[in-house]
Design a protein around this nucleic acid. Structure first.
Length: 829
RNA sequence: GCCCGGGUGGUGGAAUGGUAGACACGGAGGCCUCAAAAGCCUCUGCUCGCAAGGGCGUGCGGGUUCGAGUCCCGCCCCGGGUACCA
């Protein structure tokens, strides 16, 4: 890190300066921002000798000028960067933009403006806001997803995954709008199941799509959570999302079908004596075989009805009473030999487990509901506990009505059934996951093209590395139907097969934008390489991210996909072998609400920061976001918020005027001075607040310090100690309100406050300081005493007793609980 | 339904089992001023009392403890996530 020379280029003079100028935040802030952008203060290189750390905020979708959510997020990030820097670390602090996505494409359809133009305008606005906020970045490392040099490596990685068998093509149900002839995202389907654009009824349709085989990593992704310093609830959400279930797969013979077994999955093999029917999903591949001839018509009608429902509806719909029809065939219970009817019903999902279940209405709510609808028998196989009411019991207990299992516990019975099934070859233990493979195909223009060709002769052919990036053409037409223009661009679609030289067509799907955000943090380590996605050594040097900061809305998808990418890249040798988890610590900030809902552009309830930048300044706004409450908590933007921001501004003004009143007086402070003690107590509290993400308490400590110094100044405390206190205050303030701290520090000391060491607490001094002893009678505080923390009980007790003498009259002291030097409690009768 | 969070003054919030309400916002009074703005000072949980000094208070009900906002049990309410995953 080289010196940029501006430390001495300003006012420069030590000692007094002309403070007739008032605190003018916008002027000061813009000037410092200009200096920061010219300096290399927050540029880091891989051979930096300081201990390395990596602080990253989730890179933003460029939606235009920053809103308060951005301000909050990037204020937290910047505080971390500047604080760690003052603690002697080389901090990698990059920023970029998640610049592909639907809004730009919708705007193109609406107005005809090319998504790139639309996006880059908004990127420039967001960048300007971040700069205006005063956030410190290594801008040399800026990346954005739609940059051809980023697209190139996204495609390169896609192809490596493809070659490794981690990418495949398969059929998946999608929301299809017959009117628009296109696929819709779930958000584009209205609650009544119609298309938001055309109003047509959306149907489910199987379409060939590209997938990442994330399920191969299900177990690893689950186990990897253990060691992460992440919020517990985010880890829990990921665990639930992966949804590992241990149970058994059981084969049922089907009456009249030779050489066929119906395989079901259950987590409750112990309940097999209660299985009174079986159900297959509407998508079950063997549905036709399982349907008796006389019921084909009914089944067909049912399947048509199911097809009109999107998957979302199917699961959540109001009428989600159990729907289904009997198939007219029967399965044979391998344990009991019982003959049970087979149904098709849409409460069973085709993509989970085996797509078929044995239904146990006595021990499963869903099965019970269905059984009741269809008049099917219910058998209880677990003894209900005393006092239990209700038809369905899912808890532990002794097995009943279960033949050889009777008397066993549920857990014992599970093992017993599995071993019996294995013996007779009718089943075995099985583990299933809720997690599905990651569907990455998007029928969109504004995304990273999937680098695949289809050749009549050679079939599916990956685009050779030396032909990357595959870029979408600019010369396209955006149709109001929402179809991707790539479909109609012959210039893009028609090409030559690299293998045989014959005619080929390009894949027109683009990738989910979560692909872009799954590796950007790796590219940040080395955005300079032109011949590879990133240098492995650079990644080894910086990764994992020491502190990742973002919103909880990404708790599942982004954070899971990024974890998958890191593991896969590591296994493929593209990332360091030791790198398994990308984000060591995660912090999820609370959201900002206005009028009861999340503040967001789509809700149209934004309060933009610009007017605060123009008046009270970025420092005051930053301070407000730090002060308003715990960073992890949500907060409501209300009528009072402006007054609180105003209060933060007034605080900074008091700091400014305090600096005016306290002359520069460098030297050794008086360590015996009470002011010196207060300074150290407040260094401790400020630091503690930062370390435990309680920034609101850190700000409070700085306010107290300011108040204390102000009083000390009025009381004519030793001028060197006063100067020392103010200097410390500015150092503590630097990560939070970097501009005013820089300005005052520079004016007073001619130095860059951000290059100072974070103030160190004199712990010995704090430990020896006089403390307040609470004197209680029966647990009620009756007096307080100021005592030496080391004073022994024999000394303290008489003092305490004297202080509460009036409360000890006419009573007998039974016990004295002394927890010195904090409390002494007299227990009286 | 299930899984997390969370209920503390008029408001945002603070409090390793040890003085509940730090620090702010708002409010009241005062100083400065010809006046205002700004700034500064004092007060500000409820309640009884002239005062000194009491009593009550962290959603509700129990419990543990010398001592509970904090720990345990049972409820109520609010917010978020998730939702037929067998």
């Amino acid at each position: 890190m080289s010196s940029s020379g501006w430390e001495t280029s300003l006012v420069g003079a030590l000692g007094f300066w002309d403070m007739s100028d008032r605190y003018d935040p916008p002027a000061i802030e813009v000037a410092w921002q200009a200096r920061w952008s010219q300096s290399e203060a927050y540029h880091v290189s891989n051979d930096d000798p300081r201990p390395k750390s990596y602080v990253l905020c989730m890179y933003p979708y460029p939606s235009g000028p920053a809103h308060q959510g951005h301000v909050r997020n990037y204020t937290f990030g910047d505080l971390n960067v500047r604080y760690r820097t003052m603690n002697g670390e080389a901090v990698l602090s990059p920023i970029g933009f998640d610049s592909f996505g639907l809004p730009a494409e919708n705007a193109a359809i609406r107005t005809g403006v090319h998504p790139r133009v639309f996006t880059e305008e908004r990127m420039a606005e967001l960048k300007a806001s971040l700069t205006r906020l005063g956030a410190a970045y290594d801008w040399r490392r800026e990346i954005y997803s739609h940059d051809p040099s980023y697209i190139r490596w996204s495609q390169y990685l896609f192809l490596r995954f493809y070659q490794a068998g981690l990418v495949y093509r398969g059929d998946a149900p999608v929301n299809w709008c017959p009117g628009c002839q296109t696929v819709l995202a779930n958000e584009q389907v209205l609650a009544d199941g119609t298309c938001e654009r055309s109003g047509d009824l959306v149907v489910r349709r199987e379409l060939t799509q590209w997938f990442f085989r994330i399920t191969r990593y299900a177990d690893e992704l689950l186990e990897g959570l253990e060691d992460l310093d992440w919020p517990q609830r985010v880890k829990t959400m990921q665990r639930n999302w992966i949804g590992r279930s241990v149970g058994a797969e059981i084969s049922f013979e089907v009456d009249g079908l030779d050489d066929y077994k119906l395989r079901v999955f259950t987590t409750r093999p112990d309940t097999i004596f209660g299985a009174t029917y079986a159900v297959v999903a509407p998508e079950h591949p063997d549905l036709e075989r399982l349907t008796a001839p006389d019921l084909e018509e009914r089944v067909k009608a049912f399947l048509e009805e199911v097809a009109t429902r999107s998957e979302l509806e199917r699961m959540a719909g109001e009428d989600a009473g159990k729907r289904g029809v009997p198939l007219g065939t029967y399965a044979i219970n391998p344990i009991t030999g019982e003959r049970i009817p087979i149904y098709v019903a849409d409460y069973v999902l085709g993509h989970y487990g085996t797509g078929a279940i044995m239904a146990v209405p006595g021990e499963d709510d869903r099965d019970y509901e269905f059984a009741r609808n269809f008049g099917l028998p219910v058998v209880e196989t677990v003894a209900r506990p005393e006092g239990f009411v209700g038809p369905v019991y899912t808890g532990p207990g002794a097995k009943i009505n279960s033949g050889f299992l009777d008397g066993l516990s549920v857990e014992e019975a599970k093992a017993e059934v599995i071993s019996r099934l294995e013996k007779i070859g009718a089943g075995s233990e099985s583990v299933k996951y809720r997690l599905r493979d990651w569907l990455v195909s998007r029928q969109r223009f504004w995304g990273c093209p999937i680098p695949i060709l289809y050749c009549q002769a050679c079939g599916t052919v990956p685009v050779p590395d030396d032909q990357l990036p595959v870029l979408a053409p600019d010369d396209v037409e955006f149709r109001p139907t929402g179809e991707s223009p790539l479909l109609h661009s012959d210039a893009f679609r028609l090409t030559t097969c690299p293998r045989c030289g014959g005619p080929a067509t390009r894949e027109t799907d683009t990738m989910d934008t979560f692909v872009d955000s799954s590796w950007y943090y790796l590219r940040f380590c080395d955005p300079f390489s032109e011949d590879r996605p990133f240098d492995v050594q650079a990644v080894e040097d910086w990764m994992p991210v020491d502190q990742y900061i973002g919103g909880v809305e990404h708790a599942i998808l982004h954070l899971l996909y990024a974890r998958f990418f890191t593991r896969a890249l590591s296994d493929l040798g593209l990332a360091p072998a030791t790198l398994k988890e990308p984000f060591k610590r995660l912090f999820t900030q609370g959201m900002i609400r206005l009028g009861g809902s999340k503040m967001s552009k789509s809700k149209g309830n934004l309060v933009t920061p610009q007017r605060y930048f123009d008046t009270v300044g970025a420092d005051a706004l930053r301070l407000f976001h730090l002060f308003v409450g715990p960073p992890a908590d949500d907060f409501d933007w209300t009528d009072q918020t402006d007054e609180m921001i105003e209060g933060c501004h007034r605080f900074l003004q008091r700091v400014w005027s305090l600096a005016d009143r306290i002359p520069v007086n460098q030297g050794e402070p008086d360590t015996g001075n009470p002011t010196y003690l207060v300074v150290h107590q407040l260094i401790a509290r400020t630091t503690d607040g930062i370390d435990r993400w309680a920034y609101n308490t850190s700000v409070a400590a700085l306010m107290e310090l300011t108040n204390a110094l102000s009083k000390a100044q009025a009381d004519l405390v030793d001028p060197v100690t006063l100067d020392y206190g103010l200097r410390t205050l500015l150092e503590l303030l630097a990560p939070m309100a970097p501009h005013i701290a820089s300005e005052l520090y520079h004016r007073r000391y001619g130095l860059d406050v951000h290059r100072q060491a974070w103030p160190k607490v004199d712990h010995a001094l704090l430990a020896s300081a006089m403390v307040t002893l609470v004197v209680q009678v029966n647990g009620k505080t009756r007096a307080t005493l100021t005592i030496d923390p080391l004073a022994p009980e024999e000394v303290v007790r008489p003092l305490a007793q004297t202080a509460i003498a009036s409360h000890l009259e006419q009573v007998k002291i039974q016990r004295v609980i002394a927890k010195l030097p904090r409390v002494m409690n007299f227990v009286v009768e």
